[in-house]
Design a protein around this nucleic acid. Structure first.
Lengths: 232, 232
DNA sequence: GAGTGGTCTAGACCACAAT
DNA sequence: TTGTGGTCTAGACCACTCC
């Protein structure tokens, strides 16, 4: 019965009153001293609860001024999770497979930021044997020389990289594009059909490792994000 | 000189070693007892630092097994921030304006989840007088009856809602669509041009408040996310 | 059993900002 | 000046889980 730590219970109680609208944005929350008395615990315990809420952006704390319910974010008002393709497919209960469509090794272009030589791969990801994502990828052979000998028919490039070159920094970019001829053919779409493009760059210790462009049929794919204070 | 709290310094030291690759995923970090000795502080201070790292997903902690550097996320591997249009425009140093294109009040459809009556708005958002986003929005008049009298030529619907009905829960959905005729006309695009569609639903205390569909020209807009452990 | 993290206490001093 | 949060201490007990 006592499985929930007290600091969580305190934070949860406050969170619930914020989520329910009982405490609206700007409302001043009881002080640590008051909550300490209310819960009959040490101030550190209350402090821990309030710090957590503050770190999650539900409240704003200022010395002397006290703690108030935060206003809902205006700039950058939400976050969307970017999925791993294989997990995404299997999470839908479908069979994941992939097909290597192209593989060449060539000198890197200066603005690719991937060193001197790259391997360029084209991969089609399938869900239950239906085309799901068309991926173009460059891997730096300076950063990951083992990639030249890797068998990307056995393991898709993304999975191979995660196993061999875990990244320390990544950048993602989402945009809408019309399918070019090659992409349209791969995905079985009409030329110019609207698609969601996810571009991803990763680095390891500041050195560029890979660039990938993954193209999802626009009609078949959504990125969804839910946010509420109670789900943290 | 002592402005940085000790627990932050400890967390920062560890974070740096993870980010630099010195401590790779799976590496076992010194125990709290060892760090306590190293920094000559109380265990609570080390514990606070490690809890923070754990909450941010940089390390995984298990009783008896110790603390290890987390593997880079595989499922849901990154987050993209969703911008507020006005902030986005002004953040680019452009002048933000908006134009109300349509406004009607009508009964809500059952599957809209917005109560009995809604106000339906079409708004064009402009950056330096050039079309930037075409927005269709429904506002529940059950949840926000004041919306019926609001002047949406003076303040765009999104801003009005933030001021009058801060949400407690939101869902976002990103997809690619071809511009329909009306959208294409509003944004000055060819019919069927690829666009990024951001759909947003918000609730207050479980009651549906609004639904919005914001359409960005695909070529003109990107959602970008950067992630690295050192930027937490 | 013993090593590890998770939580909690009852204090303390300090930093900051509103008055 | 004083109320408020931010940090820190030196302990303590407990819950896990690996050996």
């Amino acid at each position: 019965m006592d499985q929930e730590p007290l600091h969580r219970r305190i934070a949860g109680d406050i969170e619930r009153r914020i989520a329910s609208g009982e405490w609206r944005p700007g409302f001043r929350i009881p002080t640590e001293a008051e909550l300490t008395a209310e819960y009959g615990c040490a101030r550190m315990t209350v402090s821990r609860a309030m710090s957590d809420l503050s770190a999650r952006g539900l409240v704003v704390r200022r010395r002397r001024a006290g703690t108030v319910v935060a206003h809902p974010p205006v700039h950058s008002s939400a976050l969307v999770a970017i999925p791993d393709i294989q997990s995404e497919v299997e999470g839908r209960g479908l069979a994941y497979t992939h097909r290597l469509l192209g593989r060449i090794v060539r000198p890197a272009l200066p603005d690719e930021g991937l060193g001197e030589r790259v391997i360029e791969l084209e991969t089609l990801h399938l869900a239950d044997d239906l085309p799901f994502v068309f991926e173009r990828r460059l891997i730096s052979l300076d950063a990951a020389p083992e990639a030249e000998a890797a068998d990307f028919t056995a393991q898709p490039p993304g999975g191979w990289l995660l196993a061999h070159m875990p990244w320390t920094e990544a950048e993602h970019r989402i945009s809408a594009v019309g399918a070019d001829r090659e992409t349209a053919a791969g995905l079985g779409l009409a030329d110019g059909a609207p698609c969601l493009r996810l571009e991803r760059r990763t680095w390891r210790d500041g050195q560029g490792v890979t660039w990938a462009s993954q193209i999802f049929p626009g009609a078949a794919y959504d990125l969804v994000a839910r946010f509420s204070p109670t789900k943290g």
